[in-house]
């Protein structure tokens, strides 16, 4: 249960395991072979991750491929079942229930009303053959709106905000460039003003100028609407630009966490040091 007033969500001991776990790896003190149990071969994709997200802040998660960043995001958005841990959202039932254990109907409600998700690949977040306007309406319909006029007004507002020309609003995203698709996805995720937004590698695969556009947009939205965000990236430049605090993940666990500047300027963990120096 979250005790702090300024906390948007908190996660305690979250874990995602692939395998049955044996007596050896159930004991937390026994060393693993990276994140795989040497005896039963259970993979610890996410292992005992705990953190808080404060209201209005941007929390960055960095780490190499396979470090569990995306799995963690999918758990937070209920795309994947968790294997262990607790998850509290202040905006849902005063943060009392562990939302990991709620029924799928209630989790869907949280997904529709409290969370917004922007996937790395717009194919997962959008219906490519429906018009961009309908894609935004989908989120609003799911959140309970039944008024076409209100939904198109919101659609216009957000498409304009993400710089999609309004004369193309009835076109399906499959006609758009990658950067435009990503912006439609952001507009969709924002359309019902969710208090928490999850961004999974949103700029990966975009060219640098479009990347700058999308990042500028994220920053602007965060300032304007005060939305709390979790940003997953393996690009430290993006983390430096966007995030107030940063968490470094390695082999499914948190290697280091703290204020972004501190992590990047004065890394403590040897992996973080390696990460920072390999880039700068």
């Amino acid at each position: 249960m979250s005790t702090h007033d300024n906390i948007a969500l908190s996660v305690r001991g979250a874990g995602k395991f692939y395998g049955d776990r044996c007596n050896y790896c159930r004991n937390e003190n026994n060393p693993l072979n990276n994140n795989i149990c040497p005896y039963c071969r259970t993979v610890f994709a996410v292992d005992d991750v705990s953190f808080d997200l404060y209201k209005g802040e941007i929390l960055g998660i960095v780490g190499e491929s396979g470090s569990g960043k995306s799995t963690l995001m999918k758990m937070l958005y209920f795309d994947q079942e968790r294997s262990a841990g607790e998850y509290y959202i202040t905006g849902y039932a005063e943060g009392v229930p562990n939302v990991f254990t709620l029924s799928s109907q209630h989790r869907r409600e949280i997904q529709n009303e409290i969370l917004g998700m922007v996937y790395q690949n717009p194919v997962y977040g959008l219906k490519m053959d429906f018009s961009s306007m309908s894609n935004i309406a989908e989120k609003l319909i799911a959140a309970g709106s039944r008024n076409v006029g209100e939904m198109t007004a919101a659609g216009d507002h957000f498409l304009d905000k993400v710089n999609i020309p309004l004369d193309r609003k009835f076109e399906p995203p499959e006609n758009f460039s990658g950067g435009m698709q990503q912006r439609v996805q952001i507009a969709k995720a924002l359309s019902n003003y969710p208090p928490i937004l999850l961004l999974d590698e949103v700029t990966t695969g975009l060219d640098v100028s479009v990347q700058a556009d999308v990042l500028e947009l994220i920053k602007e939205i965060q300032r304007e609407l005060g939305i709390s965000m979790i940003v997953v990236s393996h690009d430290l430049a993006i983390i430096r630009m966007l995030c107030d605090r940063t968490m470094v993940m390695l082999n499914g666990s948190v290697a280091e966490a703290g204020i972004t500047d501190q992590i990047l300027e004065d890394p403590k963990h040897h992996y973080t040091q390696q990460l920072v120096y390999s880039i700068l």
């Binding site: 018009s131 309406a137 319909i141 039944r146 939904m151």
Partner: peptide, 13 residues
Amino acid sequence: SGAWLRLFEQIMN
């Protein structure tokens, strides 16, 4: 929302 979305898309078009 999928069922509603189909009707919404028709209104859009």
